[in-house]
Amino acid sequence: MYRIATKKVLNKSVTQMEIEAPLVANKAKAGQFIILRVDEEGERIPLTVAGTDKENKTVKIIFQTVGATTLKLAEKNEGEYISDFAGPLGTPTHTEGIKNVCIIGGGVGCAIAMPVAEEFKRLGADVTSIIGFRNKDLVILEEEFRNISDKLTVMTDDGSYATKGNVTQPLKEYLENGEKFDMIIAIGPVIMMKFVVETAKPYGTPVTVSMNPIMIDGTGMCGGCRLTLNQDGKKVTKFACVDGPDFNGYEVDFDEAMSRGRMYSDFEHHAYEKTCNLFKGGRENG
């Protein structure tokens, strides 16, 4: 059993927790993920590590309530326990030789982008951050990003906060103005990562994307997290859990990844509704 050391509600659908897991806290690096189960009958879900506290032996996770499991997790309180927490899995984000980096976070993807930006800052790189959200209510981690970024642009789709538009607009402006990033790292919805790649392409700037497909074991056994890369005209199958989650954005077949991500959307919706009803009455922000 793993204790929830702290819990903080970041917005109505995004929650931050620190989980006591000494072995994972000792090892986890930016870009890696963990697998957790809330209770004995629960499913295994992957969540990216949003930071570690080596002193308190805790691992920070930030998650959006999208399905039954994340809803159950969000209902847990400080001091309560979850049944399983394993990791760190996946390969850490590549940082070597990168002196000028553009970090792009979309929605809850910012939770993953933040520790990556932090790591680059720690290594002394120039960090330009662009973070985007659907609307004002969904903005998270703005303060944290401001503290670790040399430049920060905040975008909202509907213009209810900061600049209206999506993250590719400021990226395009930077690139057009001759900004030479060694690397763009895009973390967020698959569609956003796809368009970041398309925006960067004419300028030849390398793009790393962080893929978050459906996973079960997370250890290189089930193959559910597979995605297709186009490498030198050849289609290659890779597994996000052991080969990723970071991939060269120019190689990823995003359309396929988006399609595969929707495999269980009907089921998820149904399970979410079921769990939601279970919690009815005890929940204000449904």
């Binding site: 499913e43 079960i216 089930c222 193959g223 559910g224 995605l227 077949d253 396929e256 929707r262 495999m263």
Partner: peptide
């Protein structure tokens, strides 16, 4: 990579372990 294609490992893990 179409939806509905499983490895046996995934299919059996979903059914047995999960």
């Amino acid at each position: 990579s179409l939806k509905g294609v499983y490895s046996a490992n995934e299919f059996l893990t979903r059914s047995n372990l999960m």
